[in-house]
């Protein structure tokens, strides 16, 4: 159990857990996005996909449980590490300068907490259906209509797009950085890992945001 203690309590171990949980969550985000893009194939295909997920039964609950545990661990460690980091420099510099750190890397906790708020809203909106009466009034199996109804409000769509911008910024640093935390630094690998963050960030932003935009512009009805 010493290994467990080392992973959770030490600086290097906690960063490794952040990297592993971050990688898993990124995997989820990419799968989720790919699923969402089925919307463009029409209501029948999308509703069949949504029904397919619902009929996984016990496996679905296992996946949900694993995802929740991963998410909670990632958020818990992020908050714990940030508190330690803030405590390590109690007096700030009078002249604050940044030599090369990216803006994305400096606002990880902010974009991360925005994601936490977003995930709670998102679940309340589409999973528990307690945010808008129009969605709770829809037929239970019609996921397609749910998305279209939800995103026909410009305010809701705007919030989703904003949240995706935050997620994108988070992934821009996170995806590139997790390799370093896991010790994967290599002359031949670095050009790829450096670009992977920005690439994944762009794919995720445009992939997700295209849907509320398409609904607002009437391309998806």
């Amino acid at each position: 159990m010493k290994l467990c203690h080392r992973l959770f309590q030490s600086s290097v171990g906690a960063k490794m857990l952040m990297a592993i949980t971050g990688l898993m969550l990124t995997g989820f985000v990419l799968v989720h996005m790919s699923g969402n893009l089925i919307l463009y194939a029409g209501p029948e295909k999308f509703n069949a996909y949504a029904h397919g997920i619902k009929s996984l039964g016990a496996l679905l609950w296992l996946m949900r449980g694993g995802l929740l545990a991963t998410f909670v661990l990632h958020v818990y460690l992020a908050i714990k590490l940030t508190i330690e980091n803030k405590a390590a420099r109690p007096v700030p510099y009078a002249y604050e300068a940044t030599i090369q750190a990216t803006a994305a890397s400096r606002f990880m906790i902010h974009t991360g907490l925005m994601m936490l708020v977003f995930v709670i809203y998102h679940l309340a909106h589409y999973t528990f259906k307690i945010v808008s009466p129009e969605i709770s009034a829809l037929a239970p199996g019609d996921a397609y209509a749910m998305v279209v109804t939800g995103f026909s409000s410009p305010a809701v769509s705007g919030f989703y797009i904003l949240a995706m911008a935050a997620l994108s910024a988070h992934l821009r640093h996170g995806v590139s950085s997790l390799f370093q935390s896991l010790g994967l630094y290599h002359g031949n690998l670095n050009p790829i890992t450096e670009k992977l963050g920005p690439i994944v960030a762009s794919i995720v932003f445009f992939g997700f945001s295209s849907i509320p935009l398409a609904v607002l512009m009437g391309a998806i009805k």
Binding site: S11, H173, Q180
Partner: peptide
């Protein structure tokens, strides 16, 4: 850790 230093966030400053 015992000295009260912070943790690495791979910003390479």
């Amino acid at each position: 850790k015992a000295e009260g230093f912070g943790n690495c966030t791979n910003q390479y400053e």
